[in-house]
Design a protein around this nucleic acid. Sequence first.
DNA 1: AACGGCAGCAACCGCCTTTCG
DNA 2: ACGAAAGGCGGTTGCTGCCGT
Length: 198
Amino acid sequence: MDKKPCNSQEEVEVRKGPWTMEEDLILINYIANHGEGVWNSLARSAGLKRTGKSCRLRWLNYLRPDVRRGNITAEEQLLIMELHAKWGNRWSKIAKHLPGRTDNEIKNYWRTRIQKHIKQAEAFAGPNPDHGLDQASTSQMSGCYPTGTHAVESYSPPIHPNMEMLFHQGPFPTAPTVSNDNMWSMEDLWSMQLLNGE
DNA sequence: AACGGCAGCAACCGCCTTTCG
DNA sequence: ACGAAAGGCGGTTGCTGCCGT
């Protein structure tokens, strides 16, 4: 599509889309041996036809050994909502308070689960044209909360009262149906890396 | 059993900020 | 002090699998 007519010999084609197992292994191996560095040159040196950004994202969101995926606990849910009430869509900031969780995962979680339930709560409370949740982006949603100046100690319901009601009804899966069944586990990858690398 | 719609997740895109020369 | 490059972040999109009809 927007592929340039390759007029430079440095112009190697850039791969996009899902990462392959081989690419993952290359990246893991390279970082294990050389550590993280300048991502653009890392991608080149490792022989990956990916942008530095893509490598970084893959590493941070998926390949890091300390990354935890799936099974967001009820405690984590509450924390996410609490911090979101405080900071809005500052996902990376929120993620820092959830060890092993990535901003991307929290963002997805918020959008797919929590936001949905907020909508339901809104609907349950009755139509209110002023709220306009549909057009409310998540950032606007943060306006529903006592954001900014309110510190956590003054933290009162981070969510609509209806949300609390939903909580008691148990709308959130305490063990979300996230499953990695269809992919190799990180343990597999890391053990492979160990076999390959050292 | 097949089809259509929906939900969830991974990855990409573009903008903003930070760092380095 | 200025400009360029890289990193970081949030928003959005596309793909895949699941569920209901």
